[in-house]
Amino acid sequence: HVRGQEPLTASMLAAAPLKEQKQLLGERLYPLIQALHPTLAGKITGMLLEIDNSELLHMLESPESLHSKVEEAVAVLQAHQAKE
């Protein structure tokens, strides 16, 4: 977890309005992704936020699954940028 941020629980997330749920998840994912890919953090976070909220909550608790999704997104993004 990121210092200064309390862990995000499923009940906290469920209590938030739908529109804010992705922002809540993003606020917690962003610093973790920024530590891996500082320059792509915003874009990668946006890509991962399209995943189902329950899976995102699981990824916040499981660094391995977060890292694998991040690397998958980075690979696709870089392949796309290379094509352009």
Binding site: Q23, G26, E27, G42, T45, G46, M47, E50, E72, V76
Partner: peptide, 26 residues
């Protein structure tokens, strides 16, 4: 098990954290 396979969307909107939103609005 029923989770949809993750297909990264390169056109997904970039996420902007709240602290950066405030910085850019100042």
């Amino acid at each position: 098990v029923d989770a949809k396979p993750f297909v990264p969307n390169v056109h997904a909107a970039e996420f902007i954290p709240t602290f950066q939103q405030k910085k850019s609005s100042l």
